[in-house]
Nucleic acid binder design. Structure first.
Length: 170
DNA sequence: ACAACATGCAGCGGC
DNA sequence: CCGCTGCATGTTGTA
């Protein structure tokens, strides 16, 4: 039961944002996971490494390393990308990844240090993905969220939303 | 010491 | 020959 660590950071603000938006549209979005993108995630490989624990907890169980195909609706553009969720064997463990992410990354102009958030639409049983840019000094600040790369200095704020998943699930 | 993960890179297939 | 696929290896953070 101690499997949940309180990995609190500012990026979770996006969860609240997502839920508000969900209320407005009467769609129920459940936060699944997020990933700060590395160079290898936004490069030409077109694949994004997903955090293991969150993936195993919130995404479908994978029977084989070939994984499954997942339709991901881009929250920003409403476009739907057909991605693949799979894993690789790695040491005695597994590495989880999302493939065919190249178009999504390019369409959103995502770069290193930007991040993605993945939600599940409870109502439709769909998956949704959102790319969030974190430009602090880009040519044009296109950041959708004012979230900056802070450390863990929002403990008090975070405390009030300490369990976004629990809130999302009700 | 161990687990997660960012990236290197070999092998293979398409051009 | 070049790019992609799939794993291996090095690095970094956690216990």
């Amino acid at each position: 039961m101690c499997r949940f660590k309180f990995r609190v950071n500012v990026l979770q603000i996006s969860v609240v944002y997502g839920l508000r938006q969900a209320s407005k549209t009467e769609k129920n979005l459940k936060f699944l996971l997020q990933k700060v993108l590395k160079q290898s995630d936004v490069g030409s490989l077109g694949r994004i490494v997903l955090p293991k624990r969150e993936a195993e907890t919130h995404l479908p169980q994978l029977e084989s390393r070939d994984g499954i195909s997942i339709a991901m609706e881009d929250i920003g553009t409403s476009r739907v990308w057909n991605m693949k969720y799979r894993f690789w064997p790695n040491n005695k463990s597994k590495m989880y990844l999302l493939e065919n992410t190249g178009d999504f990354v390019r369409a959103n102009g995502l770069q290193e240090d930007d991040f993605i958030v993945i939600y599940a639409d409870i109502k439709c049983g769909k998956y949704l993905i959102r790319g969030v840019k974190v430009r602090q000094n880009g040519p044009k600040s296109e950041g959708k969220k004012p979230a900056k790369k802070s450390h863990r200095d929002l403990s008090s704020t975070a405390a009030s939303i300490s369990s976004p998943v629990a809130q999302a699930v009700r």
